Computed example of a mutant assay.
Amino acid sequence: MKLQLNGAPLDSDAPTLAALLEAEGFGGAKVATAVNGSFIPASLRASHHLSSGDSIEVLAPMQGG
């Protein structure tokens, strides 16, 4: 299916957000995720099914002061 990951086009057959994160190298990383502009908490990623055309944002926390 065709997705957008952080603004870049991506073809993936990952059925869930958790599977997509694992396939794209984010597995185990502390990140924030949103699908189509809606925040998806880590506890719901495995049950959040993706659909063709979804736009996924993955953001890593930044340190600093």
Rank of each mutant, 00 (worst) to 15 (best):
V58F: 00
M1T: 06
S47W: 00
G27M: 07
D13P: 07
P15G: 15
A60Y: 09
A34D: 13
A8M: 07
S38N: 13
G64L: 11
E24Y: 01
A34N: 13
S51F: 11
G7A: 00
P15R: 14
G53L: 12
L21N: 02
A8V: 07
Q63F: 10
Q4D: 09
S51H: 14
V58K: 05
Q4E: 15
A14K: 12
S38V: 11
S12M: 00
Q63W: 06
G7R: 04
L10V: 11
F39Q: 08
P61A: 09
A29I: 01
S43F: 08
V58M: 04
R45D: 10
P41V: 09
S12P: 02
N6W: 02
G53M: 08
V31C: 03
M62G: 00
G53A: 07
A46R: 13
D13I: 01
V58T: 05
E57N: 00
N6P: 04
S55R: 15
L5N: 02
A32M: 12
K2V: 13
G64C: 05
E57F: 01
A8S: 14
L10Q: 02
S52T: 12
A46W: 00
L17A: 01
V31R: 04
L21H: 07
A46Q: 13
N6F: 03
H48L: 07
G53T: 13
P15F: 04
I56G: 07
M1F: 05
L50G: 05
L20Y: 08
R45P: 12
P9I: 07
L3T: 12
I40N: 13
G65K: 06
I56D: 00
A34C: 11
E22C: 02
L21C: 09
P41T: 11
Q4L: 15
D54K: 08
G27K: 10
N6V: 04
D54N: 05
A32L: 15
